[in-house]
Every structure is written in structure tokens, then in C-alpha cells.
Amino acid sequence: MTLERFLILGAILFGIGLYGVLSKKHAIAVLMSLEIMFNGVNVTAVALSRYTVPYTVPDTFVDASRFLLTGHVFTVFIITVAAAEVALGLAIIIAIYRTRQSVLITDAKELSR
């Protein structure tokens, strides 16, 4: 029951973030919910890396790092991509706010016509 509870916690965080992303009108609120989704995925990746082994365990076990810390590596990449995404997203929000005086994603709809 030790691995499962971390996975369930990650799924709950992902679900809460999913609700926020799909239901909020404010662009910054959508970005914050996206961060919650990223964190749910990170918890899942680190928990799987901590408790499970992949299907092909090498015989010698000299290269323990080759499979024991894969989830950590992916979490590092996810955090980096999330940082880039938030920087770009907030820049776009500020640019839209300057030109249209609005931060609601329902107001930026020129492409839908």
C-alpha cells in the first residue's frame, strides 16, 4: 500500500488540475491549475522510480543508476519545461492584457471567426 497511495495522490492532484484548466476563465488561473497537473505527474514519476524496477534488470547491477533514477531524470525535465512554459505563458498574458485590456481566455477569440 506504499506505492499505491503516492500514485493515488498524484491522480487526485492531476484531477484537480484538470478541473481547473478546463473550467477557469482567467488565464493565470489556468496556468496555476496546469502547475498542479505537472506536480501530480512529478509525484507519480518519482514514486514509480522509488518503488518499482523496469522489466529488464541488468545482471551485473554495476549500472544501478541506469534504471533506478529514471523517474528523477524525467521529473527534472518536466520541471524545466514547466518553467519555460510559465515564462512564455505569462509573457503572452501580459501582451494580451496590454493590447486588449483583458485577461480572460474567452475574450481572445479572433481566430474562432
Binding site: A11, I12, G15, L18, Y19, L22, K24, I28, I93, I94
Partner: peptide, 30 residues
């Protein structure tokens, strides 16, 4: 920086079906 609009944190009108989808996702994952 964008606070002078004072719009709060509004939701779409279809927030209840979205909440149901999220809860179904969590139960399915469980």
C-alpha cells in the same frame, strides 16, 4: 500587474460537467 480589472476568478458555465469528468478520472485512476 493585471489586477486593476477586478474580475475575480470566474468559471465557465460548463463547470459542473467538467467537475464530473475530473471525478470520473480520479475514480478510474483509483
Amino acid at each position: 500587474m493585471t489586477r486593476d480589472l477586478e474580475e475575480g476568478n470566474p468559471s465557465h458555465s460548463f463547470r459542473v460537467p467538467v467537475a464530473i469528468v475530473a471525478i470520473i478520472f480520479i475514480l478510474f485512476a483509483y
